[in-house]
Simulated assay, not measured.
Amino acid sequence: MTARPVMNLAPGAPAARILGFGSHQPDRIVTNDDLSQLMDTSDQWIRDRVGIIERRFGEKEDVLVDYAVAAGTNALADAGVDASEVDTVIVPNCTMPSPIPNAAAQVAARIGVPNPGAFDLNAACAGFCYGLGVASDLVRAGSAKKVLVIGAEKLTDVVDPTDRANAIIFADGAGAALVGASDEPGIGPVAWGSAGELVDLIYMRDHRWIYQEGQSVFRWATTQIAPIALQALEAAGLQPSDVDVLAPHQANLRIVESIAKKLRAKGAREDMVVADDIKYSGNTSSASIPMALDHMRKAGTAKSGDVVLAVGFGAGLSYAAQAFVLP
């Protein structure tokens, strides 16, 4: 009897890290006062409920792929890496107009990445953390050397402009991170999961408009997400006091502040910097975490070497968290 052949495995890297960040937003700024001209709302009402002051809306002719290309290009420039060195592109998103073709292959071609593995990933607002976890594991397994993860959304395409509760929240943009090999861990294990029994809390109404049960989502996020963030720290062998920057999904400023308060009650430092990009960018779903971090690095509120705790959560309901070091 002939012995069964033994297959080879690709040599993996000891660890993975983020090499660079980039982001992109459309030019059009929409203030709360602008929205009050279109619906029954006011600047104070919006600030009190979600913390948003302004957000960015794309033009009708814009497409999600445009934002992803710009953010991905900026991440490569930040890392000092040529597009030819990238071998995998992942585009977390939930607003592609059609599931076929995917965004990732188009984005890769336009950036100049030659023949990469390319796929989209839909975990809604948890998408970036899911994508970062996959990218890190691909590098450590030897399946990829450099992975470009780009959370990109054009949420204005799927928001009913007459739905006051949701139209004030969502916005457009993209955020990207380039992941590569490292001798020491720069990205911790992902802590992820889902609560499929709550799927009806966020869904596409009439298969066209994004809709969420705001109060129910708020209660779930403010009670269930901080423990997931703590699980990610434990998996990475870190303590809450080790966190320099907390970067939750920018869903609602009150949710962000609640998560930070719960983490500080568990030992996080008072000087831990908390991302609040929602104030000026709105909720950009899978783009919100990398976009917030890119903005914080440019503003100097987050710096190279900082330990970040990121946690995403959204439709599904899906959630994911991990710790990583800023490049």
Rank of each mutant, 00 (worst) to 15 (best):
A141G: 09
L178V: 05
A135W: 02
A171M: 13
A165P: 06
V139P: 00
I150V: 14
D163Q: 10
G133H: 07
V149N: 01
A135V: 10
A141T: 14
A176H: 04
L178Y: 01
D163P: 07
G142E: 07
I169W: 13
V179A: 01
G142M: 05
R164Q: 11
V179H: 00
I169F: 15
L155H: 07
L138H: 01
A177D: 09
A174M: 11
V159I: 14
D172P: 05
L138D: 00
G151H: 02
K146Y: 11
L148T: 03
G131S: 07
G173Y: 12
A144H: 05
R164F: 12
G173C: 12
I150R: 03
R164C: 11
L148K: 02
K154Y: 07
A141M: 10
F170S: 09
D157A: 15
S143Y: 11
A165Q: 15
I168D: 06
A171Q: 12
D163C: 14
V179L: 05
L155E: 03
I168R: 08
A141L: 08
K154E: 00
G151M: 04
A135S: 06
D157V: 05
I150C: 05
S136E: 06
K154H: 07
A167W: 13
K154P: 00
I150L: 08
G180Y: 04
A152N: 06
V147P: 01
G133Q: 06
L155W: 02
L178G: 04
A152H: 04
V158E: 13
A152S: 10
C129W: 04
D157F: 09
